[in-house]
Design a protein around this nucleic acid. Structure first.
Lengths: 417, 417
DNA sequence: GGCTTTTGTTCACGGTCAGAGCATAAACTG
DNA sequence: CAGTTTATGCTCTGACCGTGAACAAAAGCC
């Protein structure tokens, strides 16, 4: 992102570039490929890799495929290297995972909860602290995805669960008592839509896309613009709320406090309402999935509302691609016709010539969790982050036991990964 | 923006940083202040300034105020330094100016036109070419602001003037015959709203603001998000069209091809329609100004629609500041009460706690022209741009006569600068 | 007029990367 | 199976850059 000014910053900058390249490609590229991609001299790459390996950040393995010349190696995560703890908190359950550099995910824990701030975040905090203690300095950060707007580094509102300015960092670590202020080393709290978009930008269908629009459909609808691989999260961190614009002409009051929000017409709650079932409070995920699978009419209504809103956003923002995650994937698969039919008349004439691609996410329901991981590594893969690592690893990293590879059942929804 | 990788890139990067700092502060800071601001050693700054002065890019003048120690100097534009040609094309007239590094503007020409592509751009192209010939290599680029969406580097649509995919670069320079492709050295065509937002970000009320929303009101309404000093112009360059979302619940067909656009309810055309006068086709600027000054009712209707749309966008994007330019300044001065009253009920509850500031532009009607200038310097103030300059100035720049300092009357509207 | 303060200039020094030359390790060739 | 080809890793030299200290310069202050 930013530029180096002095020679020593230059070295730090190149260390970060190399490490990020390894992470972004999922530890698949060989050293010689990386050398070319980053326009480095072979000697420079040699020094950089050696340094990162010595710091316990990288570990080279022989490259699998046999090629013509001298065999090269694939730099990947160090066996005692940094781990990001990532959490996806939904309205009815949470999932905790440890993630290596490169993006390999090991699910550590999955638990349902009662929808209250204490009921959800208390046990989660305990689990996080236990794993942090077990992993020691290998745990370089905690990223948490939450299904509501996040303000000023941790205050979360989820109107339909009755969460009002819930201080998530404080509830996760009661002793540290941070009043909304982002404690150094505290959890990185983010909106699930914004984090799903981040994952999509790094490892999904928005990879390499300069301007993309990501929409995340769960109980309600979130949306955010992704520019140059970064979701635009607003001034206070809560800028992924495209669902709270009155794009579909409704006049129903929204729990958010406004009226006629697009979000009222798309998502699990809208599906349930459409068929006359009870909705709200984070309940009814299974019924909603049943409706999605069986009620042609409710699906069509959802898809129509989705399409109309997409048209408005495409007019305004001119994205190259529109991606859908959560229920959006199935909604698009089952009713792309209605969606596109509702979208087209809402487009400006000049947009109809070259409409953006619309695509389901490649990450399924894993987006928010992966985005939480990326948010941790985004902070770690900086000169400052690597300096901290170096300080916490005086010479040789102590032998930490591998994280238990028990993979619990993951949160509901398909998991293509 | 991006970072240097090698030592020599580092030098180029620091040259750019210094030059940009001079430009951004309007050539007001002293060399010692710049040295501190950029965290440079005095020796480095010395070498950099000397190099830039020798290249004909900077020229140091003694600092005006007398301080305690050894007197310092103020680096400013070189008398034979680079000039950006900037053009603001409106529906009924255009204005051409030459701009020095640092932002000093000299208006070169102002002319009304008939609203046709040829009528507007033919004479403009002649004027531009004449000045380019006069200035030689000092003219480092041409930036053009146009009141409609700009696609793929130059194709412009202005529905209410009947412009459909007008190839602006080709019409400005018929001999070069670029078919929409951005010719190297060709004009940088941009949307007036996006460029007004750019100017606001660099020299107006969005300076230093991480996330801001800028709305430009002329005959109709344009809007764009500004992040880190950069307006988000979409995948094809036409992402400043917040006016073409159905935010106010109308159902009137819009010339753009969609229905119920916000833009139908705000701007000169909306004012004229409200009082029953003829509108469209870029005519009626003076009548609209009269309506704005006299009709309480039409102004209130405009302000209400503006406020309602702002609420939706604030919900979605969480900007820190909302700025208004063009007629928006007067609209806000005359009816901020109605605007805010319409905005508030549309906000999410969490936004009502900390609503963004709303402010009239500090640049009045000059924004688009200044933004056109900034777009030229944004391309010039890069390692590549400075290399081109060095190549076109083999050793010592030839003596070019100063641009005539005749300042024509500027385009209609107040000009605080 | 001498002292203090601030800034510009010069230069030795350490750090960084590019590039060339050489070593290495595989596949290919006959 | 031995020589050739090819691609890569390693090492060293050279050029470049910014830092920081020492010195010079130019003003205000006492």
């Amino acid at each position: 992102m930013n530029g180096a000014t002095t020679s020593v910053e230059l070295r730090a900058h190149n260390r970060v570039r190399l490490l990020r390249a390894v992470h972004d490609c999922g530890a698949t590229r060989t050293r010689s490929q990386l050398t070319r991609d980053l326009h480095l001299a072979r000697g420079t790459a040699s020094v950089l890799v050696a340094g990162l390996a010595e710091d316990g950040l990288l570990h080279e393995e022989p490259a699998p495929g046999a090629a013509r010349g001298r065999p090269t190696h694939v730099p990947g995560p160090h066996p005692r290297g940094p781990l990001a703890l990532a959490v996806d908190v939904r309205e009815d359950a949470w999932e905790l995972a440890a993630c290596e550099l490169g993006g390999r995910v090991t699910v550590l824990d999955v638990r349902p909860h009662d929808g209250t701030p204490e009921g959800a975040l208390g046990p989660l905090g305990e689990a996080v602290r236990a794993h942090q203690a077990r992993l020691g300095p290998r745990a370089v950060g905690v990223g948490v995805a939450l299904p509501g707007p996040v303000r000023h580094g941790g205050l979360v509102d989820i109107p339909h669960l009755g969460w009002r300015s819930v201080d998530v960092p404080a509830l996760l670590a009661p002793d540290r008592g941070g009043a909304g202020a982002p404690v150094p080393g505290g959890p990185l709290v983010g909106n699930d839509t914004a984090l799903a978009a981040l994952a999509e930008a790094r490892r999904g269908r928005l990879r390499g896309v300069r301007v993309g629009l990501h929409l995340h459909v769960d109980f309600d609808l979130g949306g955010v613009l992704v520019v140059d691989g970064r979701p635009l999260d607003g001034a206070g961190g809560s800028g992924a709320e495209f669902g709270h614009m009155p794009l579909t002409g409704g006049d129903r009051p929204c729990p958010c406090g406004a009226t006629g929000c697009w979000s009222m017409d798309v998502g699990a709650n809208a599906l349930l309402r459409r068929v006359g079932l009870a909705y709200g409070g984070g309940r009814g995920r299974e019924q909603a999935e049943h409706v999605l699978a069986t009620s042609e009419e409710a699906v069509a209504a959802n898809a129509t509302a989705l399409g109309r809103g997409i048209a408005a956003l495409v007019n305004a923002l001119d994205p190259e691609v529109v991606t859908l995650s959560g229920h959006g994937v199935e909604l698009y698969e089952r009713a792309s016709g209605q969606l596109l039919a509702a979208c087209e008349p809402g487009l400006m004439a000049i947009r109809r010539d070259r409409p953006p691609r619309i695509a389901g996410s490649a990450l399924g329901w894993r987006g928010s969790l992966l985005g939480a991981m990326e948010s941790v590594f985004d902070e770690f893969l900086t000169p400052e982050g690597l300096d901290r690592w170096r300080e916490s690893h005086p010479d040789q990293a102590p032998d930490t036991p591998e994280p238990q590879n028990v993979t619990h059942s993951t949160l509901k929804g398909r998991n293509p990964i």
